[in-house]
Amino acid sequence: MLAYALKRLAFLAISLVVASLVIFLVVEVAPGDPASYMLGINARPDTVAALRAELGLDLPKHERYLSWLAGMLRGDFGTSYTYRAPVAQMVAERLWVSLPLALYALTLSTLIAFPAGIYAAARRGRAGDMGVMAATQLGIAVPNFWFAMLLVLLFALKLRWFSAGGFPGWETPLLGLKALTLPALALALPQAAILARVMRSSLIDILHEDFIRTARAKGLSRRQALWRHGVRNALIPVLTIIGLQFSFLLAGAIIIEQVFFLPGLGRLIFQAITQRDLIVVESVVMLLVFAVIAVNFLTDLAYAAADPRLRSRT
């Protein structure tokens, strides 16, 4: 198990280095010079050159890559071209919204999907199963911003349980959590629909396995066999989907952030791209890549925890 984890960790480090190189090069070849963009079209060439020197844009590429990398390792992501503020600070503020939102949405999605998927698998072909399947079909088909608008209409405007948008900060944690509830739910519903379907089909496959019949022959009831032998075996594909969904939720919440006026990562990166704030784009993308790779690492560990056969296969 330890060897397995170490090997995964080595892969993680290598992936990060490769990703950083790719991100740096892609941003490099993107057209547009940040210095002239910041100063406007009427800027004098010597002013632009001075700014380029100040930003370090005139250094050779490999030096800039290394200093960018070294900076990130120290937690120094550089200074935003447009806001003249440290990128690390800007990202950290946004992360305090986006990360809890993603985790919240993922928790909700799992809490909805597991019972729904297991219920449907246990009642395969009967009314309950068909109900779940119809609901998940709807959940996949309807875009999440539409859910968001419906949730706002119902819970914010009509019932007045939640506010329609904005984020009060984490001074009062409960208020912060409350503000994230509707966005998290809007994000979670389509994800839950997908996850429930994966859970259902995976569990149905497992229920046809010979060892379920063995369990029944030991005297386990249908329900006991499903819970004790079915669910854990059905987890592998489900964990894969959960890992993919987390990555998506972290950065893909941009539309939901717009609908609810949330200061999240998605909006930050959107603004940075429109303003040619390359250093912010680089840093946020690198951060997201790191998050995705880290989540993959955790998913790999979760696989090994769920399935002992993977532990010996390093």
Partner: peptide, 19 residues
């Protein structure tokens, strides 16, 4: 089942819960 009647199956490779 399991108490009064025990059963042994054909495929030992798949008859056991792998996890």
């Amino acid at each position: 089942r399991g108490r009064e009647i025990g059963m042994i199956f054909q495929e030992p490779m798949t008859a056991l819960n792998p996890v």
